[in-house]
Each structure stands twice: as C-alpha cells, then as structure tokens.
Amino acid sequence: MTELELLIDFHVDAERQGPGSGEDTLKALSFIDINPEASLKIADIGCGTGAQTLTLAQNLNGCITAVDLFADFLTKLNDRANKLNLENKITTLEKSMDALPFDNEEYDILWSEGAIYNIGFESGLKNWKRFLKTNGYIAVSEMTWKTKNRPKEIEEHWNNEYPEIDTASGKIKILEENGFSPVGFFFLSEKSWLDNYYSPMEKRFDAFLQKHENSDAAKAIVEGERQEIALYRRYKDYLSYGFYIAKKLPS
C-alpha cells in the first residue's frame, strides 16, 4: 500500500476524519436564516465519511451533494445514509474540491468541515463562491489561532504544516474581502477534538498496526498521529478549529 492508501485505510472506519460534533454542525446551522418550507440545495465539500452530512440531512429540507476525493469514504457515507433512510436526500460525488462540476449560483448552502485547508481558505472561498446563490451561505471550519501570541514550538509546527493558519480576525477579514458578510463564528470545544476525534483514533492504533503487520509505513502514520495528539494536548489553549458562517453579498 502507498502512504495515501494506508491513511485512507486508517481513517475510513472512523466516524469523523477531523474534530467536530453533531452539536457543532447544528450550532453553525443555527446562524443561517433558513425558510423551513424551502427545498434547499446544499453541497458538503470534503465530506469524508459524512458525519456532518448526515446531521445536515436530518435537519434540513432539501438535497445534499456530498463531495470527496476518496471513493472509500463515500461508500461508507452511502452505507450510513441507507441505514438511516436518508439515501434520497444525499448524493455522493467523487471529485476534487478544486475541480467541482457545479453550475453558477446552483447552491443555497456550501458546507465544509475541516477540509477547506486542502486548497487553502482564501482559494476555497474564491473558487467556490460562484457556485453559491446571492444571499446564500457558506459554513466552514478552519484551523485558527486562539491567541495573538503563541509558544515557539506550536507556532513553528503549524506555520510549517499550514502556512495559512491565522487568527479569527484574519480569517474574517478574508471573508469580507471576498464578498461575504460574516453572520457567525465559534471555536470547536476540547470535547470535539479529544472525545470525538483523538480518543477514538488512539483506540484504532493497535488494530491498524496489527492489520499491516507493523510495517514501517504503518508505524510512521501512527507515530505522526501520536505527535499531533500530544501537541494538541499541550497547546490546546492556543489553537482550535474556528467555525465561520457567512452570507454571499450581491456583486
């Protein structure tokens, strides 16, 4: 297996491929002015196995296009949707988020939890904006500094991993400069990181290593995740995912 195939195998059976919770999804949704009678078109971009997709489908009237680059994740999402009788509300699409085949102003809501970093926050806003109806909403969670100043270790780590990391004020400025009006913001809680993402991940380490016969590649993935978890636990007061909800303004 390649490193990418191993990573997919490690994450495919997880409920989530990043920090979050159903409560976070609903909280973000609460900032959006929704007509309960309207049938909405929603795109969930970088959906993974779709924990948030299912929450949206259970709480919105309309159809969701769930987009991910990896077919294995979409297969899991389809299985979960079928079990919850939500298959008529969710359509999966295997595509890269920088090559979406959508029409201009096709969607009422664009959603992306913990995934826009793959093409960059500003690049994602610029690339996806045209797919959103005027006065439609975008909701994305994005790695964000919680403080102006940080310890050197965590500062250097995340500036290397994701140079676009910034404070909430910096991210909100980017939204405003790209034709969006912010309507809501909050940080994900420690529970969304530890209870919902990292603790379940740690429980998968031994089985994953055993499955792949303790190969060097598998051990490298586990070690990398362990280091990330340790960094989060040490520096959780300085960073989190920020959830940004904004309305597209008329041109």
Rank of each mutant, 00 (worst) to 15 (best):
G242N: 07
L7Y: 12
A38V: 14
P151K: 15
S181L: 09
I174M: 07
T92Q: 01
K211H: 03
D98M: 09
D216H: 13
G184F: 12
K173F: 14
A218K: 08
L77G: 02
Y117V: 15
A218E: 04
N104F: 13
E156C: 07
D13S: 12
L7Q: 10
M1H: 13
E153K: 12
V183H: 02
A14M: 14
A57M: 05
I245K: 00
Y244Q: 01
T92L: 00
N61H: 10
I45S: 00
I165A: 03
G170V: 14
G242D: 06
D33S: 15
C63Y: 12
A115G: 01
P151Q: 14
N85E: 07
P200E: 15
F131M: 10
A66C: 10
F70T: 15
E5D: 10
Y162N: 08
L40N: 05
E106D: 09
C63A: 09
F187S: 06
D33E: 07
Q17N: 12
L132F: 10
A230K: 08
K133E: 05
K126A: 09
K148I: 09
R234V: 08
N85T: 09
S169D: 07
D13V: 07
F205P: 00
G120E: 07
Y232G: 03
E202N: 06
C63Q: 15
G124M: 11
W193Y: 14
N88H: 09
W111T: 12
M201H: 04
E3N: 12
D108N: 10
N127Q: 13
N149L: 11
E164L: 09
S30I: 15
I172W: 13
L175K: 07
P101T: 13
F10A: 13
H157P: 01
K41D: 05
E15F: 05
K146R: 05
L86E: 06
E87Q: 07
K41C: 08
N127W: 04
L7H: 11
G224E: 06
K41W: 05
T2K: 05
N88P: 00
